[in-house]
Amino acid sequence: MSYTVKSFRKKLVSFIAGAAIASLSLIGIGAAPASAAANPNAVVSADWLSTNLTNPKVKLIEVTVEEGAYARGHIQGAFEFRWHTDLVDTVNRDVASKADFTKLVQSAGINKDSIVVLYGDNSNWFAAWGAWIFKLYGAKDVRLLDGGRAKWEKDGRALTPIVPNPAKGNFTAATADAKLRAFLPEVVKVAKKQSTSKLVDIRSTDEFNGKIFAPAGFDELAVRAGHIPTAVNVGWKSTLNADGTFKSKADLIALYKAAGIDGKKPVITYCRIGERASHSWFVLSQILGYNVKLYDGSWTEYGNSVGVPIENPAGTVWGKK
């Protein structure tokens, strides 16, 4: 008896909500609350790039961390941004400042109306971080090369060591878009269920479950293991095919839907230091068009913070033998 009353009430609520949204969109006030527009061109293929290498509107940026890889050979016309110095603040833990980023982007010859295409090594992790910073500072058209540097090389496409020398561009960074970046207090609210945003932890399952504090060989770690309460674990790699290209949009929607992420609620992605999470940020926000923030403080900030709740299924204790 009560069951039917409840389900009736549920149906009624959803009907009213649906009608409200429908009437709002009819009169043109915003789309669904948790959906930004997906960019149908967010991912470019190597073929597209090959035919657009001399298109003056297309500006190519490589963000690769392997030393010397860019210098020895990059895609024709690509300008190098260095993640460790160009795209972050080197003293404070922060992204590159508005003024520094404007200077950097202008030196790469990028204009307000440029199509910025980024690529790099490590499956575009650092290129995706670059894409996030571009969007954070108001760039209009930002895309990633599907498969990154590795696929371009594997396909035997041409590389050159010639460094471009572009004329100064006229891009100026806007004030950082608060809708794209999450800070600790907002994340703690989600952890305490005071916010309905969805957290996506994109690290490995062992990191998520607290079996390890950080992947082998990485110094930057947190003194607590586990994950932020309420977070779901969707590894960054599961968004890619074996050759490093992005899975189809339908597959990506299904992948996240299975973890309870359907874009109806705002999403926050995080990882260990923020760079892999920018990759998933790109998938969720640029390809799927969900409303997504990157929490770049990630586990190295959260797991080191005093007095925040943590879930650690493995029960590992820091320092205990």
């Binding site: 030393e67 010397g68 210098a71 020895r72 260095r82 060591p161 460094v163």
Partner: peptide
């Protein structure tokens, strides 16, 4: 000159 066209004191040539 190919790897680092302008030595500017900020970066060394790679490796």
């Amino acid at each position: 000159a190919l790897f680092l066209p302008v030595p500017n004191g900020e970066y060394l040539p790679p490796a």
